[in-house]
Design a binder for these strands. Structure first.
Lengths: 158, 158
DNA sequence: ACCCTGGCTATGGAAATGGCAAGCCAGATC
DNA sequence: GATCTGGCTTGCCATTTCCATAGCCAGGGT
């Protein structure tokens, strides 16, 4: 059920394997409700400030602050755009780094749907090329599908 | 770069696609630094209260409260265990629902490593059966690997 | 009987987060 | 030139999260 720990490395002197772990720092940025929800809406196709505010259901002030942080972190970028007859405005788009968060958002969606009670949402992810539903899977470089129980956590050598 | 939105569904009347979305509710539980880090440590093999506290670097009080929430949410379970000559104690183990968070944690690890500066961690995930490194991928039910740019978000019919 | 340790709970305070409300600025519209 | 609108910023307050410290309890060790 839980992952295995390889070779006792993780326990030697009980050194925290996770210290300065990328997950720590990712959570410093994404570890609040609003940031993740803003990113979700950008994935879902919203890009304008007012859209994001309305869909996430948060106030202007909070949204502005989180968006600033996400831009500073390089996950979103502000891009000028102009609709005909409108003045130039800014929209928020995913950078390469932001787009790489897709598996995490897809994972949260999938997990929430199957493991939280009372799913009332109707969002699905599908593959543009073939229309089939998309799932998040763990796979090793030899090409095997890896169930959670077969994931081994280890420290690579210095 | 960003996901496409299919068929204008997401925008009809600007209805928030994400309202009551599983991601909202997942983030209500996991949208704080500590919860995710505690889960990470359980994945890494820690299970005893004191281990978790030390490795996550949080105080007893906060850890106890988050653990209580995670147990209440059915992500962790308390299991009595007894080491010889010791009294009975409780350890925290992943439930099925908790183990299903593996792709999300693996995704965060991978994302942080490749997209945040100065990665100093040494954790790797590998496949117990073949020792090859493990990655998180999006795959459709037809078996294609799906790059982020080919993920379509849509609302399924009521 | 006494202490010690692991695993908590309690209390108080600081910092982050979020809501509400108001104001500001640039440019399009009148 | 006055007004309106989108996209913010500012100020203030409530709530949540977190840290620090202290205390509690069960049961083994002595």
């Amino acid at each position: 059920m839980s992952m295995q720990v390889a070779g006792g490395l993780a326990r030697r002197g009980d050194v925290p394997l996770g210290a300065a772990c990328p997950i720590d720092r990712a959570m410093a940025l994404l570890g609040n409700r609003t940031s993740m929800l803003l990113l979700r809406e950008v994935f879902y196709g919203a890009s304008r400030f007012e859209q994001l505010v309305r869909r996430v259901g948060v106030t202007d002030a909070v949204a502005a602050q989180r968006l600033r942080e996400l831009v500073a972190a390089g996950v979103l970028a502000k891009q000028p755009y102009r609709e005909p007859g409108q003045r130039t405005r800014q929209e928020y788009v995913l950078t390469e780094s932001g787009a790489a968060l897709a598996p995490i958002l897809a994972g949260l969606l999938e997990w929430g749907r199957t493991h939280l009670p009372d799913d009332r949402s109707r969002v699905t992810l599908s593959h543009a090329e073939c229309d089939a539903p998309v799932h998040v899977v763990l796979r090793c470089e030899s090409g095997h599908d890896v169930p959670e129980s077969e994931v081994v956590v280890a420290a690579r050598r210095a």
